[in-house]
Design a binder for these strands. Structure first.
Length: 666
DNA sequence: TGGGTTAGCGCG
DNA sequence: AAAGCGCGCTAACCCA
């Protein structure tokens, strides 16, 4: 039985501190009324030094005393063990400006040790697997939204809070053993190190210009409403309506937000768009493919729709945008896909972003889950997701190019953003890991995509000088898609479908078999890449895991391989995982390196998007910060891809190019 | 009403 | 029938 000591008087707290100073290992857990440090109320701190479990009752202890934990939590001698420690990190930083170090996060370690196996990583799930203890969550304390004016804790609640610090300590040795077995020591250190910069990123947040976003509501709503009304009128006028519903807002035949309803309505008038499984689908890619094929068939069984948006729509702006959208020929599909795109931006990024603004800081504080993509090791972001904000091009295609979601993210007064990214890093990794000298040379010396355009697609008119002009750019984009597709384990069928759409305007058309030939041709050019990808596909299937440059592993449940499709999926995933994993490792290392060098009060890492790192720095420090970022990112390349160590110097400023971006201009 | 799933789409 | 990798979010839809 664990000895639990409740701390509710100051002298007890002081005695606890004395004892903990001698600890070697310390379990850490906190209880609060919510998830957001700026708005929640702290309730308890649980600490376990492997002899005593302390529970500090923060309803009774002065929060100023939390600062006394600083030497313990910041001690490099005492290892802090907990579940999802970025949460605890923010807690102690917020309440005591404590920067916890030397951590072992049982949640992250479990994600790393079982990457790809789709397991649960809650404390309850990990404790069940590692300690064979079933934590009873029904008795356990939950204090979300608790009314602190009316709150006292029961003995049971103290006990169960204490256990949240105890179990992680009991799992420590077991997990360390697993790490050793898997040879994950180096990745483990990196993942634990970046807990601090990750937590700080979340804590710092990003200022979002609220009024800039609010100004987008009216035009975007207009676009959605107008396109919706046009589509309704077109469906009704052409006999696709089963019923018409009148309301205060107007009339409608279907809910255009339902792709199912739209697909069925279109089916009624002979517009039957199906995916390869034969199911009705209105996915953009499927729609584009269908539209292209119909264009070819014109004059046969194809009904030519004579619809003029300008007759249906009063607003010229919307009608003009609809005229051009995606180059689709069919006016129904054009209206629908356009509507769908505009609606997505309005709901997810305009309203979504406004909802996410923190009432205390006025900033948005997304979570950055450092092993969110647990299969490959990449970060993910949520609440809101800052890794998929639409770029300006997307808005331009919709005819809303005068607005920008990304530009609404602004550096705070007196600071600037510095954005540094690895460009085309996945192909660099592919070249380095496979040892394919030819691919590496093409990346470094010339332009890989232009070369592939010439040698694989057989389009010879492109040169380094004309590559950005049409139609050459079209071909180069197709070559780029082919190269990245290959790194993802693509198939001939997929390549044929994708390239046929991309190159439709120049009359390009190949079938699946010809797609296979293109892939084979690509591999003829880069034979070492073929051998490398093949060996990873084999490893995934035969050993059940593959490794990245630092030994990061992705696993598969080999029992599922009796299913042919799961086996094929594992081979594709096996080809890609070491590439994505190495890229993730590289970016994480860069984050760790710059975190150690950037002056905390002058520069903060605020966002990471896979191969990009954004820092917010005071203007006078920006040049120095940019240099530190550049050096950190280059060092990260050298330490993850030693093969290219001598090469990096050659593309100083291109492959690693911190761009100064002064978004602050008030 | 509330949770889980599906379709579709945003990003690298 | 399934055939490019990795994520998260919204709305619709289904079921209890």
């Amino acid at each position: 039985m664990i000895d639990v000591k409740v701390i509710n008087e100051a002298y007890q707290f002081d005695m606890m501190i004395k004892q903990l100073e001698n600890a070697k290992i310390l379990g850490v857990d906190t209880e609060t009324t919510g998830l957001d440090p700026y708005t929640y109320h702290p309730l308890m701190i649980s600490l376990y030094d492997s002899t005593t479990a302390f529970v500090v009752d923060l309803l009774k202890i002065d929060h100023k005393k939390i600062k006394q934990l600083k030497p313990i939590l910041e001690s490099p001698e005492i290892i802090k063990v907990g579940h999802n420690l970025s949460y605890e990190w923010k807690f102690f930083y917020h309440l005591g400006r404590i920067e916890m170090i030397n951590m072992h996060d049982v949640m992250l370690v479990d994600r790393m040790n079982y990457a790809g196996l789709q397991m649960q990583h809650t404390l309850k799930a990990v404790v069940l697997r590692k300690l064979d203890i079933d934590m009873d969550k029904t008795i356990r304390a939950s204090f979300i939204d608790a009314d602190i004016n009316n709150l006292t804790f029961s003995e049971e609640q103290y006990y169960y809070s204490a256990m949240d610090a105890v179990y992680p300590v009991q799992m420590y040795e077991i997990q360390m053993e697993e790490i050793k077995e898997r040879k994950l020591e180096r990745i483990y250190r990196l993942e634990m190190n970046i807990i601090s910069p990750t937590a700080m990123m979340e804590y710092t947040g990003v200022y979002v210009n609220k009024s800039m976003i609010e100004q987008m509501i009216a035009p975007f709503t207009k676009f959605v409403r107008t396109a919706d009304k046009a589509l309704q009128d077109m469906l009704i006028g052409n006999g696709a309506a089963n019923s018409i519903v009148f309301s205060r807002e107007g009339y409608r035949t279907i809910n255009t937000g339902s792709s199912d309803q739209v697909a069925q309505a279109l089916e009624r008038i002979g517009i039957v768009v199906k995916n390869s499984a034969g199911k009705l689908s209105l996915k953009a890619k499927i729609v584009q493919r269908w539209d292209m094929l119909q264009r070819k068939k014109k004059g046969k069984a194809y009904k030519d729709w004579d619809i003029d948006y300008h007759e249906l729509i009063e607003d010229d702006e919307v009608a003009n945008a609809l005229d051009l959208y995606l180059g689709l020929d069919n006016p129904f599909l054009r209206a629908y896909t356009f509507l769908n795109g505009a609606r997505k931006l309005l709901s997810t990024y305009i309203y979504g972003l406004l909802d996410a603004i923190n009432p205390v800081t006025g900033k948005v504080h997304p979570y950055f889950n450092s092993l969110g993509a647990e299969a490959t090791g990449r970060y993910s972001s949520n609440g809101p997701n800052f890794q998929n904000l639409p770029n300006d091009k997307k808005l331009k295609v919709l005819g809303l190019g005068e607005y920008s979601i990304r530009k609404a993210l602004e550096a705070i007064t007196g600071r600037v953003f510095i954005i540094a990214d690895y460009s085309g890093i996945e192909l660099v990794i592919l070249a380095a890991n496979s040892g394919d000298k030819k691919l590496m040379d093409m990346i470094i010396m010339g332009d890989i995509h232009t070369e592939v355009t010439i040698y694989v697609l057989g389009y010879k008119s492109i040169t380094q000088d004309n590559r950005d002009d049409q139609p050459h750019k079209l071909w180069r984009d197709a070559a780029k898609t082919l190269s990245y597709g290959i790194a993802y384990g693509t198939t001939g069928r997929n390549i044929s479908e994708t390239l046929n759409i991309m190159l439709a305007s120049v009359g390009y058309k190949i079938d699946a078999a010809e797609g296979d030939k293109l892939i084979a041709k690509w591999f003829e050019l880069f034979p070492d890449v073929y051998a490398y990808l093949k060996s990873n596909a084999d490893k995934a299937v035969l050993k059940g895991y593959v490794t990245d440059a630092w030994g990061r592993r992705r696993f598969w449940d080999m029992e599922t391989f009796t299913n042919k499709w799961k086996l094929l999926a594992a081979q594709r995933e096996g080809m890609n995982a070491p590439i994505q994993g190495t890229s993730a490792t590289m970016t994480k290392l860069a984050i760790w390196l710059m975190w150690g060098r950037l002056k905390r009060n002058k520069a903060r890492i605020i966002i990471t998007i896979h191969d990009e790192i954004v820092v917010e720095a005071v203007e006078s420090y920006a040049v120095e910060a940019a240099q530190i970022m550049k050096e950190s990112m280059e060092q990260a390349i050298r330490e993850t891809l030693p093969e290219v160590a001598n090469v990096v110097g050659l593309y100083k400023g291109t492959s690693v190019s911190p761009k100064m971006s002064a978004r602050y201009d008030k």
